[in-house]
Design a protein around this nucleic acid. Sequence first.
DNA 1: CAACTGTATTAACCGTCTTAGTACAGTTAG
DNA 2: CTAACTGTACTAAGACGGTTAATACAGTTG
Lengths: 124, 124
Amino acid sequence: MISINFRDSRPIYEQVKDSLRRLIVSGALPADEKLPSVRELAAQLVINPNTIQRAYRELEHEGYIVSVPGKGSFAMAQSGANTERIRALLAQFDDAADELMYLGVPAGELRARIAEKEAKGNEA
Amino acid sequence: MISINFRDSRPIYEQVKDSLRRLIVSGALPADEKLPSVRELAAQLVINPNTIQRAYRELEHEGYIVSVPGKGSFAMAQSGANTERIRALLAQFDDAADELMYLGVPAGELRARIAEKEAKGNEA
DNA sequence: CAACTGTATTAACCGTCTTAGTACAGTTAG
DNA sequence: CTAACTGTACTAAGACGGTTAATACAGTTG
């Protein structure tokens, strides 16, 4: 479900954040779904609870989850559009598309990928 | 031309790499164009020459530039398709698209962005 | 020869990531 | 109520990577 790569230069807490965000975005973690507890996920990944805590704290700050002392952490329905995050994602999207086309990947293939996601999103 | 952000958590040499790669990809730096020397760019950005050297070394390893002792560093025409880089870029592209659509950005807008790039690429 | 180019190497500093250990308050099942 | 869970906070220590500084050497060029 969630995996981390110790060889990766990226911090573990970032990898955990991205994994969880991807699970939420993909629908694998619907709103109000309970996440593993800080200690449980730490034990599962064999890393320190502090590292998980940091990932959860930042995900909550980004509006993807909500943590309640004593109860747990839960996936959260996206409320207000996160304009700042959208701006960053669009920049990432454009950069990747620009370089891919420079490297010879046809624009049609990129558009087809979008269309495929659109279909998958509607079937769910 | 090339700018770095000291507040950014990303390493300076990565920022330099991305700036140069973007200049090459966008066509601002055509093949065989001479890049600033290691020391010159370091002085311009007020950072250590070693940091520039590292950026150049890795860009050469990625096939974006070529460095010749005594002469300088030059933008390089993309020869063989860099399959590894393309794979990573497609993953980045997909992740951004997935989350953008999750956040409510319509697929049509993403496709329109691709089409726009396609048009710009053809006019050049 | 002089001034440039890339390249290599060593040492030192500093910030961040991660771990370990402990502690406290809220929640919940028995 | 108690026990076991939950999130949260804090300090200390170690490890690692990024960056700088200071040289040094070889190839190129006017």
